[in-house]
Nucleic acid binder design. Structure first.
Length: 203
DNA sequence: ATCAAGATTACCT
DNA sequence: GGTAATCTTGATA
């Protein structure tokens, strides 16, 4: 399997308003190449973090050393460390100077599943329940895909990590809700997820 | 220098 | 459903 059969999303896809991009990410493929090995997950759930008006966004108080990637030109990967244990990966959006990004919250594992299973559970067999728990949370995705601080700032349109056209998603299957795990700006309905998909992280 | 919060997860009852 | 674990970051409580 090579990458030629994928329709890779171009930089221009990401250099727009984050709230326009976030729902469009659902159904797309998130792909990481590790040598000859390919890891692929279908995007099931995301959250948008918006510049200026969004108190929950890391970018709300302006540029810091940690969040500076959010202000980069769209099409980069923003990875941060949280709760002493976990990494979360984000798709940077909009033009340079705008601090916005989309948190990838859940994937449906499609390829490279053995690798993901080994990294998540340190064994090779999983129960059906464990399978559903492989990549249904932002920290779990980073563990399964081996994404950590070294991947912060990577080009999302490059050879190693990129997004590709996936499955067509009817608009009626895109649901919207408040975001998970935040204290400020709780009311803003900027979480987007696929209706009835078993890999969604929370109801 | 010190400190509290945090875009989570796994494991407990 | 409840919470301990765990540590980096950014503000200075």
């Amino acid at each position: 399997m090579n990458t030629l059969q994928f329709h890779k999303l171009p930089e221009t896809f990401f250099q727009k308003d984050v709230l326009k991009i976030a729902p469009k990410l659902l159904g797309k493929y998130f792909i990481k190449k590790e040598g000859q090995k390919l890891l692929i997950g279908k995007i099931i759930e995301v959250e948008a973090y918006v510049d200026k008006i969004d108190e929950a966004s890391h970018s709300f108080n302006g540029v810091t050393n940690r969040n500076k990637l959010m202000f980069a030109s769209g099409g980069k990967l923003y990875v941060y460390f949280i709760y002493g244990n976990h990494y979360c990966c984000n798709v940077v959006c909009d033009k340079e100077g705008v601090g916005s990004a989309v948190l990838i919250r859940a994937l449906e594992p499609l390829k490279g599943i053995e690798i993901m299973v080994e990294r998540r559970f340190r064994k090779s067999e999983v129960t059906a329940k464990e399978f559903l728990n492989l990549t249904n949370g932002p920290g779990k995705i980073c563990r399964a895909f081996n994404i950590a601080k070294d991947e912060n700032g990577m080009d999302l349109c490059g050879e190693e990590i990129f997004l590709a056209e996936g499955e067509k998603v009817p608009k009626k299957n895109v649901l919207q809700s408040p975001r998970i795990g935040i204290k400020k700006s709780k009311e803003l309905p900027w979480r987007f997820y696929l209706k009835d998909n078993p890999f969604v992280s929370a109801k």
